[in-house]
Each structure stands twice: as C-alpha cells, then as structure tokens.
Design a protein around this nucleic acid. Structure first.
Lengths: 162, 162
DNA sequence: TTTGTACTGCAATATTATTGCAATAGTAAA
DNA sequence: TTTACTATTGCAATAATATTGCAGTACAAA
C-alpha cells in the first residue's frame, strides 16, 4: 500500500538528521515513490515527474536513489531484473543505522504491485544455512513472484497498480 | 564448485533433446560457465572467451544466455545487481520442463563465489505467506549475502574465486 | 552429399548508468 | 534578514549494457 503523505516528511527528516539537505528534487522523488504501489526505475521516476510538470535531471535521480538506498529508505527489487526499481521501506522498517535489513517481497507479475511481507520462520533458516555452509550471512533477500489477489480473481482487469 | 567437463555435454544434450542445435558458441559459453566458480555477465563471458582466443559476438552471447535461461540450465544472480550474471544449475536441479524453480544462493561479497543451498523450511514459509496475503506464489528467489568460509578465515587472501 | 533452416555475426541503435564541472540553492551563523 | 559556506543539482559528454534486422554460415536430418 502507498504511504501517507506525512511519511514523506518522516523520511526526509531522517535524512536531515544525518546531515543531508532537504532539497526539492529529493522531496519530489521520495514523494513519487511514496505514492506509488509499484516499484519504479530511475527513468520511470523522471518521466512521471515530467508528466506532472516537474523537471529533475536523470543524473540527480540516480544520485538521490543512491543516497536513499544507502540510508535504507528504499531498496531495489531484484526479480524484475534490468532496471533499478525502488520503493520506500515500510514504516516499521524505516530505521536509519539499522544493521540487518532483510527484504521479503511479494511481486505481482501482472500488475507490478509489490508488498513487503513478514516471514516468521526465516531466522531459523538463515541460521541453519549459515551453519551448514560455514558461511557468514550478513543479509538476505527473498522475493516471491506470482499473482496478487486482484489479478488472480476471475474479474481482474489488466491494469498496472497505481 | 565448478561442474565436471562431462556436465557441459549433459547440458548441451538436454538442449538437443528439445530440438536445439549444438553449436560451437553454445558449447563455449556453457563450458565457460561450467568451469567458473563465480557468476559471469554477458560481457565477462565474451572477454574471457576472447582471452582464450575464442571469438563469440556479444549478441550471440545474449541470445545463448536467453536460451539457456529459458530452459533452466542457468539462472541469474540478482543480488549483484546491474549485470546479467549466470551460472549453471546444480546437476540435481537440471531438469528441463521442471515447473517450480527455486533458487537459494549463498553469495560471497568478497570473492564472488556462489553456491546453491537447500533450505528445508522454505516450503512451509511459501505456503504460509501465500495464504496470509492471498497471493498465488509461482516461484521464489532467495539470496544470502555474506562471506564464504575461505574469505572469512583470518588467513584469507583477497582473490576472486576461479 | 545435399538441403532446409536454426543460428551466428555484424552494423546500427536503444536503453541504462556514470563522470566532471560550473551554477544553484539549502542551511547555519552573523 | 542577510551572508557565506558547501552540499547538491543540472548539463554535456561518455561509458556500459542490451536489442533489432538481416545476410551469411554451419548444424543436422535425409
């Protein structure tokens, strides 16, 4: 689900706490991701902003995304492959300086809708795998591909969410 | 671990069964992936082949990778992001026409070494998530990032596997 | 061998991402 | 408020990655 407008300010404020400036381009990008139910690539963000009459250079968008990602305010969706797609963290995941970020995503192949989910048993699996393979696991990323409830229903219309 | 040389023939033969031709470029690409402990991008494959005195056009490599991927002989490593990296399936995973392909990968951030692992509890998690979110899960992808045993040891040398 | 066509290689082009630098605009302090 | 510092942006150029169309090649079956 898309975040509240207020969350944009929360995210920007978190950045400011760390010494970053709150600029118009940053606000626009965060706001855009904030209100989108689907992940967006850098170019998609630029195009959507342009459609709204806001011009932000693609280079700036890349740099803004990099900044947001470094500070764990967004993360990439990997299944979709070639483009760098991002979405805001869930509110309860939004903690700067948080060490272990694990992302469990449901991704609808039909409409692109993305939702974060909680996976109760994952910790145990992580521990088990790490032990078996003598591997130090620092983070993990789990994505489920399939059909969301809406697209799965017999009456679904083929529209992209948001 | 890298696959046996014989496995290259197994993979190529699996393709032939499906009506594909066994060509020199295909054999070279499969062989290259076969003997590499780390995932490779299209351009990396081309460069390595060139270093061996074998010339295969990048376009052909893209098309070969596409073919191999469609037939589940290789799959992409997503965590590494922007490049399309591939590696051969584990032998016991190599079944054409297999419906559900789930990839559980250990990825060493230091040396790039990649290993497939078995995750005993995953099925239950998949079912649980699907039920909770009313989502039809068709496939999933799980990747662990961290340090392999070798790179984690105090005596490790910073070299790329293979 | 011969023959049909799957496949490759080349050229051109599209898409995505990065770098350096001058101009701009947040922000803190005066 | 105004000033001054500098983080950040936008532009231009370029690099890296990926795709398309088509003519020529080489697999594989007969």
């Amino acid at each position: 689900m898309s975040h509240t407008k207020k969350y944009t300010e929360v995210a920007l404020h978190a950045l400011k706490e760390k010494g970053y400036r709150i600029t118009k381009p940053r606000r626009l990008v965060v706001e855009m991701l904030n209100t989108s139910d689907i992940a967006l690539s850098a170019y998609e963000i630029r195009d959507r902003l342009e459609a709204e009459g806001e011009k932000v250079d693609k280079v700036s968008i890349y740099r803004i995304l990099e900044c947001l990602e470094e500070n764990h305010l967004i993360h990439r969706v990997l299944m979709t492959g070639k483009v760098r797609k991002c979405q805001l963290e869930d509110e309860d995941h939004c903690h700067l300086n948080q060490a272990d970020h694990c992302h469990h995503l449901l991704i609808c192949e039909q409409c692109g809708f993305i939702e974060e989910v909680h996976c109760p048993g994952m910790n145990r699996i992580v521990q088990q795998v790490a032990e078996d393979a003598q591997f130090t696991v620092k983070s993990h990323h789990l994505e489920f591909l399939g059909l969301c409830q809406k697209c799965n229903s017999p009456h679904h219309k083929k529209t992209a969410a948001n």
